[in-house]
C-alpha cells in the first residue's frame, strides 16, 4: 500500500518546484486525492473524493483558509513551467481548451487572461489559477454494467448511453467499459470487439504525445483531441470499428455523426451530462436521438461516497434492468 502511495506521490510532485514539493510530500492520503488547486494569493487546496482541505506551510491539512500556504505568482509560474516541460508553445491547442495533459494522463487546468483572435481563443497569458486533476484508473468500475451492456447469444454490444451529473464518474466508467469490451469478457463469453475511441478532451485514454496513459484495451484505436463528429466519421472510414465510444455527446453535429455510425451498423457507447433520462428528453439533440429509438441501454450514475456508483440501468423503453434505482 505504502509503495503504491509513494508512487502516486512521486507521479504528481514531480510537476511541482522544490518549495511546493516540500509541502505536498507531507500529505499522507494521496490515494484519495482527486485535485490539487493553486490560485495566486489564495491558500493551496487539495480536493479529495469526499472533502476538500487547505494545506499549511508544514504540509498539514487544515480546514481554515487563513491557515493554508498562500500560493505566490512565482509558484504558479514555476509550476506551469515545470509541468509543461518548459514548453507551453507545444501545447497551444490544448491551452485554447484550458488544460494541458501531462505524462501519466494527469491534467493541468489553466485559468488566466484569455487572448482572443477573430473572436476565438488564441492563448492565455498571466495564468493565475491551476488545477491538477489526477488521472486514475478504477479497474472494475464497469463490472456491474458489463453484463447489461452485452445482450444476446452470442453476446453483442448494445447501443449505450451513460448518464450522470458532473463529477459523477461517467468518464471513469466509460474507460473501464471500453477496456473490458475491447479486451473481451471471458466470463460472459464475449471475445472482445474493435473499438474506435474518439477522445475529444483527452480524458478517457489520457493520451500524452498520442499514447494512451490509461488502459483502454488491446483492440482500441484512440483518436485524441479530435472533435467528436469528425472523429466518429474518421474512425468509421479508416478503422471500421465494431463499436464507437465517445464522451459527452450533446451538440447537433454529434447527432449526425452518431446517426452515421448507426447507419454503418456500428454500436455506439457514449456519455452525457444529465441527472435523469427525463432531463435528457427535454434537449433537442436527445429528443432527436430518442426519436430514432436506437439507444438500448441507459446507465444512470450517481456520486455518493465515490464517483461512478451505478444508480440504475434501463433498456431503451425505460424498463429497469439488473441494478435497482436508489
Amino acid at each position: 500500500m505504502r509503495v503504491k502511495q509513494d508512487y502516486q506521490e512521486q507521479e504528481l510532485v514531480r510537476f511541482f518546484p522544490q518549495t511546493l514539493r516540500g509541502i505536498l510530500q507531507h500529505i499522507t492520503e494521496w490515494e484519495e486525492v482527486e485535485e490539487v488547486r493553486l490560485k495566486t494569493g489564495k491558500p493551496l487546496m487539495v480536493r479529495f473524493a469526499r472533502k476538500d482541505a487547505f494545506v499549511s506551510q508544514d504540509g498539514v491539512l487544515v480546514g481554515r483558509p487563513e491557515e493554508g500556504y498562500v500560493v505566490s505568482p512565482e509558484d504558479v509560474n514555476r509550476v506551469v513551467n515545470i509541468a509543461s516541460g518548459a514548453s507551453l508553445y507545444a501545447f497551444e491547442e490544448e491551452i485554447r481548451s484550458g488544460y494541458i495533459t501531462l505524462p501519466g494522463g494527469h491534467r493541468l487546468g489553466l485559468a488566466g487572461q484569455v487572448v482572443l483572435e477573430r473572436g476565438r481563443i488564441k492563448t492565455q497569458k498571466h495564468i493565475s489559477g491551476l488545477n491538477f486533476r489526477l488521472a486514475r484508473e478504477v479497474r472494475g468500475a464497469a463490472d456491474e454494467i458489463v453484463p447489461l451492456v452485452l445482450a444476446g447469444s452470442p453476446p453483442r454490444v448494445c447501443h449505450t448511453l451513460i448518464i450522470s451529473p458532473p463529477r459523477g464518474g461517467k468518464t471513469t466508467v466509460l474507460r473501464d467499459l471500453v477496456r473490458q469490451l475491447s479486451d473481451g469478457v471471458p466470463r460472459l463469453g464475449f471475445p472482445g470487439a474493435t473499438i474506435g475511441l474518439v477522445d475529444e478532451r483527452s480524458e478517457i485514454a489520457a493520451c500524452y504525445k498520442g499514447v494512451p496513459q490509461l488502459p483502454v484495451g488491446a483492440r482500441t484505436d484512440v483518436l485524441d483531441s479530435c472533435p467528436k463528429a469528425e472523429g466518429i466519421r474518421l474512425m468509421l472510414r479508416a478503422f471500421g470499428p465494431e463499436v464507437v465510444a465517445t464522451d459527452e455527446i450533446g451538440r447537433a453535429e454529434d447527432a449526425r455523426a452518431v446517426e452515421d455510425a448507426l447507419n454503418a451498423g456500428v454500436k455506439v457507447v457514449a456519455t452525457a451530462h444529465a441527472g435523469t433520462v427525463d432531463e435528457l428528453r427535454k434537449r433537442p439533440f436527445f429528443r432527436y436521438l430518442f426519436a430514432l429509438g436506437v439507444i438500448e441501454r441507459f446507465v444512470l450514475l450517481e456520486r455518493r461516497e465515490k464517483p461512478g456508483r451505478v444508480a440504475a440501468v434501463t433498456d431503451g423503453t425505460g424498463r429497469p434492468l439488473g441494478v435497482k434505482a436508489c
Partner: peptide, 10 residues
C-alpha cells in the same frame, strides 16, 4: 522567456 509563451513569442 524560455518555454513560457507561444511559438511566435519564443
Amino acid at each position: 522567456a524560455l518555454g513560457n509563451s507561444d511559438r511566435e513569442d519564443q
